[in-house]
Design a protein around this nucleic acid. Structure first.
Lengths: 122, 122
DNA sequence: CACGCAATGGTAATGATTTTCATATGTAGT
DNA sequence: ACTACATATGAAAATCATTACCATTGCGTG
């Protein structure tokens, strides 16, 4: 199942992943998918973003570092972005705000070149 | 009902707002609350953030500009932050990414001075 | 082999949001 | 003033992802 998530290589919802596994013949329960995904996220080996609809999307992360992504609103293609500036800004804001233990969530969404310039209308 | 949202002065969930209205004697349906809140958000007169639990929180915004907030994880107190750096970064990232129509979501969460240094343990 | 223990999977419960639909409210036209 | 039509409203039902339960399975140990 970890294999499946890695194979997905992009942001996937628990529902979607489960469905794909079942269709692939894997005998796995929705509960287990959620459990594994949540565990992965807790362990810091998966990134989580929240879809407008409220659904949570997971993506396997081989490395240890904190990442941010730019997701295509049409096809869902996710692209890691360099968020150094945001990290710095977040740290500074945290420091000057008086708030403690500040965490941040940054999500970019757009239309990827393929979908944008694209001919999805033809 | 708009009055109630303004009176709240801080991030409030639709459910919460509705409950408060009903308790205040206002005869209003949950549907209307959602409708109004969504309309406000669409019209750009309300900010929306998403709670970890998946709940949507709304906050009235008098001004027209795009804002970002730092929310206290304990008491929910929201504090507008200067996100100029993020805006710039987002714009630049949008430009270099090849993605079109890039939007961004930035949420900071932390523990506000009152809750942090606080004596919530005594 | 019996026992315990943690992981699993199916199902029911939860909770927020959306949809539906019949009703009330209001407006314009006659 | 009265009817016709559009719009906003509220109650309840439908939806959907996620979580909680619980009986069952698989496995290692005594």
């Amino acid at each position: 199942m970890l294999a499946a998530l890695i194979r997905a290589a992009d942001f996937t919802s628990a529902q979607n992943l489960h469905q794909r596994l079942v269709e692939a013949g894997e005998r796995v329960g929705l509960s287990t998918v959620y459990r594994t995904l949540t565990a992965l996220a807790d362990a810091g080996r998966a990134d989580v973003v929240r879809e407008p609809g409220g659904e949570r999307l997971f993506r396997y992360r081989p490395s240890q570092e904190h990442r941010h992504y730019l997701l295509c609103r049409i096809c869902g293609l996710g692209m890691p972005v360099d968020a150094e500036a945001v990290e710095v800004w977040a740290a500074r804001t945290a420091a000057t705000s008086g708030y403690a233990d500040v965490q941040h969530t940054v999500e970019l969404t757009g239309t990827c070149p393929a979908c944008a310039g694209g001919d999805h209308s033809s």
